[in-house]
Structure formats: structure tokens, C-alpha cells
Nucleic acid binder design. Structure first.
Length: 231
DNA sequence: TCATTAAGTATGC
DNA sequence: GCATACTTAATGA
């Protein structure tokens, strides 16, 4: 395995307080792997033998119901830790992580978790901050699901992806990874047909522009209004 | 208001 | 040319 460059981790929150030598130590123990779009990094219920950091790409965190339907719980962006089951005192992964685009991740054996939190200043704090933020986001979507109409939920989901991964283009804010209507319906608890109809209408109204697996938010402000029940 | 069924077109390997 | 993505209309809970 090629030696990993220290610049991969410098500046990332979990490691920002560490010196060069410590970053070197951490990298020397890491495995680095590339994942094709659609590949699972790990699966729900399986033994959590490693924890991960996403260097490049985007992930969908997915849970499957008894009925076999998929629910997209959240997305992971570059620089974020994921699969941190040890922080939850778990020995199995609570969800499946799937590469939404071609992705690159580092990973370490769970056995190192305890040492990381003990020896690397800021690592524990950042991990729990990440968990807290995710819990907050999950709670938000949960309340949204229970209280808001479909159009508001879909608008929020699209905005969330645009905010998290959006890159600005002359057209507007472009979601940086491939998303299907089905994916969005898996995030919002509706059907792909309803999502398709909404996107078609929004496109006609000049709020978004979309082609297959690709969405650009051309009028973010209008979309924010659409996500608001008062509209 | 929204899911379901159904029947079609478009797109990309 | 085939699978996958997407669109649209009709129907009914």
C-alpha cells in the first residue's frame, strides 16, 4: 500500500489539534480504499470491525425495513467520520453505508478507537459533536415526516442535499452526487411518481433544473419558501 | 392530498 | 437492445 500523504488529514476537525508526528502515526495505521458508485462500505447488523473517514465522494446511510423498503437516513460528506459504532458502544453497524458517487475512505480497526480518543486531543470531542449533529438532523427529518406535507418534505430534502454538497454554478446550486427520484422518495417517505411530478412542476416554475440523476437548484429562495408549510 | 396502477418515453452502457 | 431512469394520466382511498 502506498504511503498516505499527511495533507489528507491536516485541517480536518477530528485531527486539527494534532501535530505532524501524530498524523503520521494515524495514517500509518489506516487502510485506504476506493468504492464504486452503488457499493456498500459496510452493512447494517454486521460486526463493526472498523471505523471510517470519508476523504472523497458521498455516501448514503440506509436502513432497510422488515418489508424490504429502503430508508435513506442521511448523507455523509468528505471529511466526516462514519461507521463509528464504537462511539455508540455497539459492536454492529446500525445502518448500511452505500457510495452515492465514487468514493475514497480511510479506515482503522475498532481496537484503535479507545487509543484514538485517549491519545489524540480533540478526536473524542469531534466524534461526539458529529454524532450529536446527526442525531439532531435525524430528529428534524423525523418531525418533518410526521408534520409536513409531501411537497415540503421533498423541498427540504433537496435543500439539505444542496446545502451539504452543493457547488455553485452559473445555473444555480448543483447537487454534487447522482440522485434518482427513487432516492429522494426513499428520503421523504413518498413514491418516485410523486417526486417526479413535483420536480417536473418545479422545473416548469424555474425553481430547479434536472436531468437524469442530476439536480440543479436554480432558485434556492423559492425552494426555501416551498419547504415552509406557510409557503 | 397522495398512493397506486399502468403505460408510455428517454437515456446510457 | 436492454435495463434503468423518468413522465404522465387515470383512479380511488
Amino acid at each position: 500500500m502506498p504511503r498516505l500523504d499527511e495533507s489528507l488529514l491536516t485541517g480536518l476537525p477530528p485531527f486539527s489539534r494534532l501535530g505532524r508526528d501524530q498524523i503520521r502515526e494515524i495514517l500509518d495505521q489506516a487502510a485506504s480504499r476506493r468504492y464504486d458508485e452503488g457499493t456498500a462500505i459496510f452493512e447494517e447488523g454486521f460486526e463493526a470491525d472498523r471505523f471510517y473517514l470519508l476523504l472523497d465522494g458521498y455516501l448514503r446511510v440506509v436502513r432497510t425495513t422488515e418489508g424490504g423498503e429502503q430508508i435513506i437516513v442521511l448523507h455523509i460528506s468528505p471529511g466526516q467520520l462514519f461507521g463509528i459504532a464504537p462511539a455508540l458502544q455497539r459492536n454492529t453497524y446500525p445502518a448500511t453505508a452505500v457510495a452515492a458517487a465514487e468514493s475514497l475512505a480511510l479506515s482503522w480497526p475498532v481496537g484503535l478507537w479507545e487509543r484514538f480518543t485517549r491519545e489524540y486531543e480533540g478526536f473524542a470531542t469531534e466524534s461526539y459533536r458529529t454524532l450529536g449533529q446527526r442525531l439532531g438532523q435525524i430528529q428534524d427529518t423525523l418531525t418533518e415526516m410526521a408534520t409536513q406535507a409531501v411537497e415540503q418534505r421533498v423541498a427540504s430534502a433537496v435543500l439539505r442535499m444542496a446545502n451539504q454538497s452543493g457547488r455553485k454554478t452559473d445555473e444555480g446550486i448543483e447537487i454534487a452526487f447522482p440522485v434518482t427520484r427513487q432516492n429522494i422518495s426513499d428520503m421523504t417517505g413518498t413514491t418516485l411518481h410523486t417526486v417526479s411530478r413535483l420536480l417536473s412542476r418545479w422545473e416548469k416554475d424555474g425553481v430547479v433544473r434536472s436531468t437524469r440523476k442530476h439536480i440543479v437548484v436554480t432558485d434556492p429562495h423559492r425552494l426555501v419558501l416551498l419547504s415552509d408549510p406557510q409557503g
